[in-house]
Nucleic acid binder design. Structure first.
Lengths: 338, 338
DNA sequence: CTGAAAGCGCTTACAG
DNA sequence: CTGAAAGCGCTTACAG
């Protein structure tokens, strides 16, 4: 007869006529319990809907069994929508956490110096998963600090030499190369790049560089770049700027699908036909890419695999095992726009 | 000199030459501390990067200061993408939690009997936010159980009489009515509804009923319904079925934007022009709706407001205050498709 | 304004 | 295989 409130292991122990320690053993799956005792306790546990208290357990074991996902987007600090690609990562990360028996704390925030403090110091989480866009230069400094502090973290992003910490990312260079090769094969030679390819945005930079390499081999080139953060609006503006610049081009490589979708709108307004007048390729393969008109040719990143890798790497880091950065393959998805 | 590992309040107390209780008081913002002592302790706290241990604190206070967001989607148990509308809710819920000083645990799952057990019994969370589509009939049973068990929860969904627990939802009926009125005003009289409007899906049913009412006043009607869950593929199939059925119609009301986008694709394939041949209206105003071709006329639900309301209601429920269901207004957004 | 002390609900060495 | 006991790091009534 547990009193008001939820039953505790002491209540269950009384009911079963054993010590509280034995109840705890059963719940932790210890082999040091007789089958009969175990059965009796499990029955009571079910009957009273007893669950181990997470806080008591975590306090005792010094493990939160919780991971924190920090999503940040520098360009759009407004209240609105998050990049759908990140959201698909969120989905796969959630599922990977469930498989690993970890709870997942989620937070959207601006770049912060307190990531570490907020989660690991307070022991809310055993480690952090960092997911976001933003100026990598500013970001790197913070990563370095996290490493110094011994924070357990993994990040999704460009995988480059000499980066602080562990990164999991798509093979952006190879993805770009596949786009360049495809465009060349379709007879396109003058490609405009839409997106900020600079050292502040290494993912985009790698995509552009890969594309350039493939193009060069075929006698083509990236003839212009118009900066854009990853949003439809930025993509539309960049495409309009491209059109107004008078640059001669026969293809556009948008650094992300969101940018490509914005460009698609700008081209339609200007009566530029895709793919007849200009071939258009995006990157990310967000769900909607199959449903644009024309359907978007783009690069698929295996978010399922990435989520699993992120969680798995982080857990190994937490256990003190050695972990290295890793890339997930990029795969060209040819649809109608190029 | 805190030993290895993070500093505890005991370490800080030693360093400051006070008792551990005093440190705790400072950190909880108790007025029972002299200004001088407070200052000294705060300095040390900063210097040693000390944070209150969440588990110890929660164990002692019996409050997790954490909310759990359970996202479930019945129709697509596959690994893939989550409805973007829910994701935008997730964004606003996260921010609302931050404002209220609550951590947010996120989980995607199938319908489960263990929602309660998994989160509140184990004290991982003080309350649950339920977000998802699925067969309401099956769902209602579970809600009833949650109420019986005294679980603190709020759900996003249709707000109807006699529902168990607290619901926050859009005014679906009024949203539907606005769609019907707009279509009628545009001279459309024969509207096909795409989406499963049944008692298993009360949101869609309300949307359809609202639309019918407005249409009736104008001499129009909903002439057909083709079921679809909320996805592009289901929308495309439903639209094709509509076309094949030979029904005469001059407008389509899709129960969600995802369905509308699928229908847009199917119409394009069949050379049915939107809005010339058929006017098309969606529901949700997901970010991409502005960028489809033609841009989608749809119904906006204030997710910002909804997220705040959900969190606020749940917290009041947790504090034992009385809370009632509430609706968020629906707003027609006219673009090009109708 | 401050400290000593009890206790939140577990886990796990230790002893049997 | 089982129990008694210590202790994880806090918060808060109680006493001064």
């Amino acid at each position: 007869m547990p009193k008001k409130g939820r039953a505790t292991s002491v209540d269950i122990a009384h009911l079963a006529g054993v010590s509280q320690a034995t109840v705890s053993r059963v719940l932790r799956g210890s082999p040091l319990v007789s089958a009969e005792t175990r059965r009796r306790i499990e029955e009571l546990v079910r009957q009273y809907n007893y669950k181990v208290d997470k806080h008591a357990s975590s306090l005792r074991t010094q493990r939160a069994s919780t991971l924190a996902l920090l999503l940040f987007e520098d360009p759009s600090p407004d209240e609105s929508h998050i990049n759908p690609f990140f959201l698909s990562m969120l989905g796969s990360i959630t599922r990977a956490c469930a498989r690993h028996g970890q709870d997942l704390l989620v937070s959207f925030q601006q770049f912060s110096d307190d990531w570490h403090a907020d989660y690991e110091d307070s022991k809310k989480a055993d480690g952090l998963i960092l997911l976001g866009y933003g100026d990598y230069l500013a970001y790197e400094e913070k990563l370095r600090k996290l490493v110094e502090q011994g924070t357990h973290f993994v990040r999704w992003g460009a995988v480059l030499p000499d980066q602080p910490g562990v990164s999991i990312g798509c093979d952006n260079f190879d993805g770009g190369r596949k786009v360049g090769a495809h465009l060349a094969e379709r007879g396109r030679r003058r490609v405009a790049f839409l997106g900020e390819a600079s050292s502040g945005c290494p993912e985009f930079l790698e995509r552009r560089r890969g594309c350039e390499e493939a193009l060069r081999e075929a006698g083509g080139a990236v003839v212009a770049q118009f900066d854009a953060v990853s949003s439809e609006d930025a993509g539309a503006s960049a495409a309009r700027a491209l059109l107004e610049s008078g640059t001669a081009f026969d293809a556009v490589f948008a650094a992300s699908d969101l940018i490509a979708i914005g460009a698609l709108g700008a081209f339609a307004e200007a009566d530029v036909r895709v793919p007849e007048d200009v071939a258009l390729v995006g990157f990310d393969d967000i769900p909607i890419a199959r449903f644009t008109r024309p359907a978007l040719t783009t690069v698929f990143q295996d978010t399922q695999r990435a989520g699993e890798l992120l969680v798995d790497s982080l857990m190994r880091l937490i256990r003190g095992e050695s972990v290295h950065s890793e890339m997930v393959p990029a795969q060209l998805v040819v649809r109608q726009s190029a």
